[in-house]
Simulated scan of single mutants.
Amino acid sequence: MGRSGRVTLTDVAKASGVSRATVSFVLNDDPRQTISAATRERVMEAAQDLGYVPHGIARALREGSSRIVVLNVDWGMEGNFSRSYVRGLDEELAEHDHMLLVRYGHSIPEATQKVLDTIVPRAVLRLGEVYMQGHAPSEDDWESGFAANAALQIGYLADRGHVRIAMATPDHDFPLIEARLGFAQEAARRRGLPPLESFVVQRPREAGATAVESFLATHPEVTALAALDDDVALRSLTALRDLGLRAPEDVAVIGFDETEHGSLSTPALTTVHIDAEVLGRIAARNALGIDAGGLAPVRGRIVVRASA
């Protein structure tokens, strides 16, 4: 319990195994937040067992006393997807006389709570949070959502005759890696392909070449690499070149979440372009309790270049 003996949000958060921010959203029944039924039930049970009593901050959050919406963007998610998402979120909020505050870095519960206590934002969002929580994608998500974009990458390689495909992943924490790998595996299954292998392309350059060389030596059947993002794809291309291999003749490489650097590489990088502006606008309307009807996600597209 807190020092005063009163049960606090921190106590409920520890008991339920979630962040203080999540506890706040659940206890205030905030409809603007996407929180699973299982998490809500766990928080409510912990609060009841501990005898938690809400206080002024919780009431202020429920009432939405400021016109600020906070977006947490984890490290490693600063690509075209996040930039377009932020643009759409910011513009839509501005149209409704609200302001966006973007926080980069790991979404630490204590830091998030300081924001809540200081400015009492209308809502606190986290980019990609629904996928970080392990929610299974709906069929709509397979049509035009994040799952569809992951499937687009695998499908492009499959359409070009590649059967043995591997996922190239980064050597640092990436919040959506489990979701991406899961979507890719399901996309391969739906295509009738064998399960995808995966390996880490390490840094610096020499380590990356060693990692690619070691992987291909033990998996000679692999003919294509689907990279988690463009950065990993470009490091994979560099490694292949250092090993005296050609893309796509020896091993095809495709990126994800297009960056401008891919067009400057040799060979130029084939990748998946994603425009998430409409997703940002939908998130803004949901946060403000405004009908998002008429807005629909835009499916990604393949940027065809020379590497795959």
Rank of each mutant, 00 (worst) to 15 (best):
G2M: 14
G2W: 06
S4N: 15
G5K: 05
T8A: 05
T10L: 13
V12G: 02
K14W: 05
A15Y: 01
A15K: 07
S16N: 04
S16C: 04
V18R: 02
T22C: 07
V23I: 12
F25V: 08
F25P: 00
F25N: 09
D29E: 15
D30W: 00
R32T: 14
Q33T: 08
Q33R: 13
I35N: 09
S36I: 07
T39Q: 14
A46D: 01
D49I: 10
Y52M: 09
V53L: 12
V53A: 12
P54T: 13
G56P: 02
G56F: 04
G56W: 08
L61V: 10
G64R: 11
S65F: 08
S65M: 12
V69L: 02
R83I: 07
G88D: 01
L93E: 06
A94Y: 13
H96Q: 08
H96T: 10
G105V: 11
G105S: 14
G105H: 14
H106Q: 15
S107H: 15
Q113C: 00
K114W: 07
T118M: 14
P121H: 06
R122Q: 14
L125Q: 03
G128R: 03
E129I: 12
Q133R: 09
G134Y: 09
P137Q: 06
S138W: 09
S138H: 05
D140G: 06
E143K: 15
S144M: 07
S144Y: 01
S144C: 13
G145T: 03
G145I: 06
G145S: 12
F146Q: 07
A147G: 03
A148V: 07
Q153M: 09
I154V: 14
Y156P: 00
L157R: 03
R160P: 05
G161Y: 03
I165R: 02
T169Q: 13
P170T: 09
D173R: 08
L176F: 02
L176G: 06
I177K: 13
I177H: 10
L181T: 07
F183V: 04
R191Y: 06
L193K: 11
P195S: 14
L196T: 05
E197F: 04
F199Q: 02
V200W: 04
Q202T: 15
P204R: 03
E213M: 05
E213V: 07
S214L: 15
L216Q: 02
P220E: 06
V222A: 05
A224K: 00
A227W: 00
L228K: 00
L228E: 01
D231V: 10
L237R: 11
L237V: 10
A239R: 02
L240D: 01
R241Y: 10
D242K: 01
L243S: 06
L243E: 03
L243G: 01
L243T: 01
L245R: 15
A247Q: 04
A247M: 01
P248S: 11
P248H: 08
V253Q: 04
D257P: 05
D257S: 09
E258M: 12
T259P: 07
H261I: 10
G262M: 05
L264F: 14
S265H: 10
T266C: 10
P267Q: 12
D275H: 03
A276Y: 05
E277T: 07
V278R: 00
I282W: 03
A287E: 00
G293K: 09
L295Q: 05
R299Q: 08
R301D: 12
I302Y: 11
V303T: 12
R305T: 11
A306T: 07
